[in-house]
């Protein structure tokens, strides 16, 4: 059975085909949820919610985009809705998480120190992303990992394109700090 056939059958309520779609896409949806919320239990709940919504909405899938793109967008919306309910969206967008950086990212005017190139691995990067403040993490995950454009992020998050760009820059700067700290700590051991 092809994916297109599974989609058609799932539209008619075929549970078996729906399970096939779940099997195909669960990893990507779960990884997206996990990176956005940084918590396995929450990520599993959100994965569950995303696929339940998929079951209920699959009849509206018209094939104008790839199914994976459509499902991905649906999943992002599920996570963002969840975060809005928790009140994190407003907090992060107003940047009250790090009020000392209200006027923009911290400047690096200091002496030259070690550069990161070649020194970070996947595990360290994943951990550093996990420890980003939620607002930074969401924009970073959506833009740098998932490949969304700023206009798409702005639409999904209900913020300006400029805000999305600014949050992304701050997220990368914060990640650089986190990764450098980890590298230095590792070197001291």
């Amino acid at each position: 059975m092809t994916e297109a056939e599974a989609i058609d059958r799932a539209k008619n309520g075929d549970g078996y085909s729906f399970e096939l779609l779940y099997t195909m896409h669960k990893r990507r949806v779960y990884s997206l949820c996990l990176r956005m919320v940084g918590n396995t239990a929450e990520a599993e709940d959100l994965t569950q919610e995303a696929f339940l919504q998929l079951y209920r909405k699959i009849a509206t899938f018209r094939g104008e985009s790839a199914f994976s793109t459509w499902l991905h967008r649906l999943s992002v919306n599920v996570v963002l809705m969840h975060l809005r309910k928790k009140g994190l969206n407003e907090v992060s967008l107003e940047e009250t998480i790090e009020p000392q950086q209200e006027d923009g990212p911290k400047k690096d005017l200091g002496a030259r120190d070690n550069v990161l190139a070649g020194s970070i691995d996947r595990v360290n990067l994943e951990r550093a992303i996990e420890s980003l403040p939620p607002g930074y993490r969401i924009i970073f995950v959506l833009h740098d990992i998932e490949g969304y454009e700023h206009n798409e992020i702005a639409e999904m998050m209900g913020c300006s394109i400029g805000n999305s760009k600014s949050q992304l820059h701050k997220a990368r700067m914060k990640l650089r700090d986190l990764l450098k700290t980890r590298t230095l700590e590792k070197a001291r051991r």
Partner: peptide
Amino acid sequence: YIADQAKLLLPLH
């Protein structure tokens, strides 16, 4: 470098 490395992160879980 950070932006490039992020693009390489695959869904692994």
